[in-house]
Design a protein around this nucleic acid. Structure first.
Lengths: 246, 246
DNA sequence: TGTATCCATACGTATAGACGTTTCCTCTCC
DNA sequence: GGAGAGGAAACGTCTATACGTATGGATACA
């Protein structure tokens, strides 16, 4: 990490500046609830305009690294606020953030005619032609954590094979690198469910055990739905975490 | 809603402009996935600088009303993305958003010595002197929805009485209007739990029934903890909803 | 007919400067 | 000693201007 803004760098200056300040916060150089240099001072220090400084601070404020107090200054947020857990993450990223080794076992992958409920979530007419469905057993440190069923709405003529999935590592990687589809927003619901005999067997628990059922509809850059995911988490192993903002 | 920016208005111009555009989107005057006037055009139309226009659009983008495409324009987001459900809400607000009439029955209100787990969440040393605890039965359309236990960290010498709670209507209103404490962020966890006989009786369900356990730590303006809330929701009546963003 | 280039338009980044508002400290006067 | 006025410092809002970069269509040319 550099300690000055480089005008020749390809990335925006406000972005470079935000990285510099974030680094100084993470290393502890700037202390919690202590003021960071004022906007005018940083204008001098980093040889950028105050607008650029403010743009960098806006970014850091949204990311939860700093908070501002009108007439007083800009302060470092407590460390714990820095983990933005509820950011849009895949199961793998989610597990890694918790320090658990993610794993998976693909149970089925292929084209199926989506049931009515799924059509509604994906904003499709019912009945609808077959779309891609992937069923997976999700593992955490080797033991079953959840049972995931995902439906994907791909552009016409696109197909995903098991081989390709292996190459790219994850569906999200594949979608981003091959089709330039990036998840930007999602609506998620959580409720309690009870395991059917079939689900129980796969998750290695007793039938009727309580589960945490998560359903997520994911939107891409242009705010169109491209994914519907349903995950049944083992009630005894999984805790959902979120960060709420006003 | 006015249709022009008033320089004499006390509120910032970018805020006024955002309101105007939001209104035009909500009424359907600006259509989904259609471009809104370009930044330069709005500069002319509303007689403000482009910076101000962009500031208004930044706000609307964060609120999910519009999305931008570099080199093409700014577009109206689909209507459904406009309900930002996961915003920080109280139980009452949450219920109202779902069209359910909220209600409550205060079971207990008073000072207690917080247990160790609660001290940790509130960043207090254990043992700690008594703090305010409120235990409530939460109702939706008259029937039990959840059992809530809240701990509040109030400034020295502050007390809350049942009478005051009645006057202000809700704890949040009281905190905001009397003590100027406003919730700005929160960390929440959700997991599955099973009802103890006592909890079951209060919630009018069978002992051992699955529950959705929510634990929330809430932060005020200066990013300090002021509240820890634990709610046991009836698994058969409550669905948690959230909106995730990248 | 097809392709390559150019250009208008839109958003993205950046600067310099001005004035408003809040906070807090200091100094003065009673 | 206390209350009030004044001022410095910090964030908040706003303008005018310039140049960068992505998109998509029009135009020119092979």
């Amino acid at each position: 990490m550099t300690d000055s803004v480089d005008p020749k760098d390809i990335s925006p200056r406000y972005y470079q500046l935000a990285n510099i300040i974030r680094e100084r916060i993470i290393t502890g150089e700037l202390e919690q609830h202590k003021p960071i240099p004022s906007e005018r001072q940083m204008e001098e220090i980093y040889s950028v305009s105050r607008t650029t400084v403010r743009q960098a601070l806006d970014l850091l404020e949204r990311q939860g690294y700093v908070y501002r107090e009108h007439g007083r200054g800009t302060f470092v947020s407590p460390q714990k606020l820095q983990k933005r857990i509820s950011d849009l993450t895949s199961f793998s990223e989610d597990m890694k953030q918790r320090g658990i080794e993610p794993g998976q076992k693909i149970l089925e992958i292929g084209l199926v005619e989506p049931p009515e409920g799924v059509c509604r979530k994906l904003e499709l007419t019912f009945p609808h032609e077959p779309i891609l469905r992937i069923t997976r057993l999700r593992l955490g440190d080797g033991t079953p954590m959840g049972l995931q069923t995902s439906y994907y709405l791909l552009p016409d003529g696109c197909e995903i094979t098991t081989a390709e999935l292996e190459v790219y590592g994850s569906v999200y990687n594949l979608l981003e690198e091959k089709l330039h589809i990036v998840p930007t927003e999602a609506d998620e619901t959580l409720e309690v469910a009870l395991a059917t005999p079939n689900e129980a067997a796969l998750l290695q628990i007793k039938p009727g055990s309580p589960l945490l059922l998560s359903e997520r509809t994911t939107y891409s850059q242009n705010r169109r739905v491209f994914e519907f995911v349903k995950i049944l988490y083992r009630g005894d192993r999984y805790i959902y975490t979120a960060k709420l903002t006003r």
